[in-house]
Design a protein around this nucleic acid. Structure first.
Lengths: 198, 198
DNA sequence: TTGAAATCAGACATAGCTGTCTGATTTACT
DNA sequence: AGTAAATCAGACAGCTATGTCTGATTTCAA
């Protein structure tokens, strides 16, 4: 055991960065893309890829972890704990949705994972939003008749959907954000209809 | 050309039915399940599977087509053109959701397809709902500030999300339907906030 | 400048899946 | 009861991807 120097040389760090970028792009095109394809796009030999990521699973795990971490930081930076719930939600979703766009391919990849692992993966993101949702449910701003986790899932899923639609060109970039915000706000809001009907 | 007798023997029809059922179950467990795995679960030799479905793609296409057709029929049977838009939407989504329950597996499989192909696949379903959505937008019941297709995407995505949550055990079956209906109703509804703010 | 780290190109074994084909056997229809 | 359809078990070739290893070569860092 050489006690782990933990200091990579400059070219190694460059390779790793290229590989991670390439993995995101290539896996976005085809969730089943091979290691060779990723290496090719990264402009790196396949052997080099294996030198840094011992297995395909390890590579995907690393990519996923980075995406989740980035999303989590973006959300935290939007201060979900401040202000009126509806307004805070709009702020947070608006901040997160563009950042998440690059990574929506990972959703397809991770759909192969066990539900438990998937849940654990999303926890850093969901965890930051749960207090906001629960706060909104207590204040009457959000629907308190359903589990908080369901509302979180809905918000997450709508962000993914907007990202897909926008990147597919079916929803103009300019129109996407307001459309998303309206959908999220409505989907989470307390059911006004039942109050009026009764 | 033997002019296609089109009359399978009883055991053949039985095999086909077993295979389709097994495909749904097995692909639910692992979207990349092999033909051998499907045949095994169906209690059928792999050769028999290939006798009926010449290729893996053909099998998946057949399974998917049946699910879509069933959902489409269910929706049509719920008469989306009748009644007040909000109420019609609730009726239709509730009907579609129950049918989709059996096929939550396919949601995971098809999440890997290209957005274009996915859209084309869903067209039979979306086509039946579009008139309802547009009707609701004109009557002021639904959000007219966004494209009708966006609202359709939102509705579809929420049904899929509910299906995933339910099959993952995070959303109890009994709670799923009301939660889904509330989310869809809210997401499509005209933004009450903006009307009051303006 | 010099040695260690990192890269490359490519060979290699392993494994799995697909799709085809066989020949023997069972099952359904008339 | 007899014929054709359908089944089975299993072998087969072809392909592709993974992960390992080599030995030569380049690149960084002190």
């Amino acid at each position: 055991m050489p006690a782990a120097p933990h200091t990579r040389r400059a070219d190694a760090r460059r390779s790793i960065a290229s590989i991670l970028d390439a993995a995101i792009e290539e896996l976005a095109r085809d969730p089943d893309a091979s290691m060779g394809a990723v290496a090719g796009r990264a402009g790196v030999a396949r052997a080099t890829l294996y030198a840094h990521f011992p297995t395909r699973e390890a590579l995907i795990a690393e990519v996923t972890d980075r995406a989740i971490a980035e999303a989590s930081e973006t959300i935290a930076a939007a201060a979900p704990e401040e202000g009126e719930p509806r307004e805070a939600l709009a702020r947070v979703v608006a901040a997160a949705w563009r950042t998440l766009g690059r990574y929506h391919a990972l959703v397809a990849i991770n759909s192969r994972l066990s539900p438990e692992r998937l849940r654990a993966l999303h926890e850093p993101v969901v965890g930051r939003l749960r207090p906001l949702v629960e706060r909104g449910q207590k204040s009457g701003a959000f629907n308190a008749d359903v589990p908080a986790d369901w509302l979180l899932t809905v918000a997450l899923e709508l962000v993914h959907a907007a990202s897909r639609e926008a990147s597919a060109g079916r929803l103009p970039e300019a129109a996407a954000e307001p459309a998303l915000l309206a959908a999220v706000a409505g989907a989470l809001s307390a059911p006004a209809t039942s109050a009026g009907a009764r």
